[in-house]
Nucleic acid binder design. Structure first.
Lengths: 186, 186
DNA sequence: GTCTATAAAGCGATAGAC
DNA sequence: GTCTATCGCTTTATAGAC
């Protein structure tokens, strides 16, 4: 998180943190102001569309990050099985081993789903697609690869729910490890 | 949903619907009043603790329902494998094949987790416990049964996230069916 | 017991000084 | 470009009429 906010994108990490912690409705402008160190004037200067534009900017940033660090590597990995192993590593790091919630998953379950429906749907669809392609290249049939990919993305999201519910990140690690074994066995 | 509200418990289904649809923060008293057909006077007469007491009453009702319809049957089923099959059926019906969100899962990911932390943690812990016992009775070792139970509850929660994200309940059915096969194969 | 009116606080958003 | 003050509205919650 940058110490000084010089441009719009500098505020995104703090914004993401606030939305993850408090949800869209719970993230008030005063909380956002405190987290970013910006007054309302500056916030509306960077984000004329207000809170909705702030959340959209965070979602776009997350989408770009996953595209760059997860989806594309999955699709382009020379060794698909190795690519899948690396996906689990990157995802575990991203979610801080289950301590950090998936903002897009939380938006999917919450009241803000309709507002950001397209973004939310596209994120999960692309994750499933990219993983299915890697699995197909690793030897699974087309239909089986899709099924395995769907199960895996669901397992990760479910693991985040359970980890946060139990306030115990060990749950997340266990589910991730078993899902990786299930996917790469044989 | 009862047509007339004569006592506190008559309002619970409508309350649950509002919290599921709008989340805790998004469920304003005016929405709650419209959904229940009750004025604020009546609401505060039934729930002196306000919104928090309303949500807690809903969580208690859900907890009781799952205990009665899912956890206890799992533990007491004469045929544990058949009991597990029935769990999948009951859960599919409860979540309207993925169209209905798990309020406790949504609270776990959302801003209201801290407020209802004990309730949320207990719900998932008991589900995993009950399913693990059934799996153990069906022949799994103690550790393996726990792992399978954890994976299954996570798969169900993840399936709800994906179904809601894609606005496609078919996803939910597919993941549930595959998880059931995985659990009961051999 | 249920309504309407109202209180007090917080909200998102805007305007204007600097 | 960033601040403070403020608008208009909604929120939860309460008070008092009936």
């Amino acid at each position: 998180m940058p110490r000084t906010i010089g441009e719009r994108s500098d505020a995104i990490p703090a914004l993401a943190e606030v939305f993850r912690t408090h949800g869209f409705d719970g993230a008030s402008l005063s909380l956002i102001g405190a987290a970013t160190g910006l007054g309302k004037g500056s916030l509306y200067n960077f984000f004329p569309g207000g809170k909705e534009e702030m959340a959209q900017a965070v979602l776009d940033e997350i989408d770009g990050w996953f595209r760059r660090e997860v989806f594309t590597p999955l699709r382009e990995a020379k060794e698909p099985r190795q690519g899948i192993r690396e996906m689990f590593q990157v995802v575990d790091r991203y979610f801080h081993s289950g301590r950090r919630v998936c903002l897009i998953g939380a938006f999917a379950l919450g009241d803000s789903r309709d507002r950001f429906a397209a973004c939310v749907a596209a994120y999960f669809a692309e994750w499933v697609d990219a993983l299915a392609e890697a699995l197909r290249r690793a030897g699974s049939g087309r239909a089986e690869a899709r099924a395995q990919a769907e199960d895996t993305v669901a397992a990760i999201q479910g693991a985040l729910v359970l980890a946060r519910a139990a306030d115990d990140r060990a749950v997340f690690g266990r589910i991730m490890r078993r899902q990786e074994l299930l996917l790469l066995r044989k």
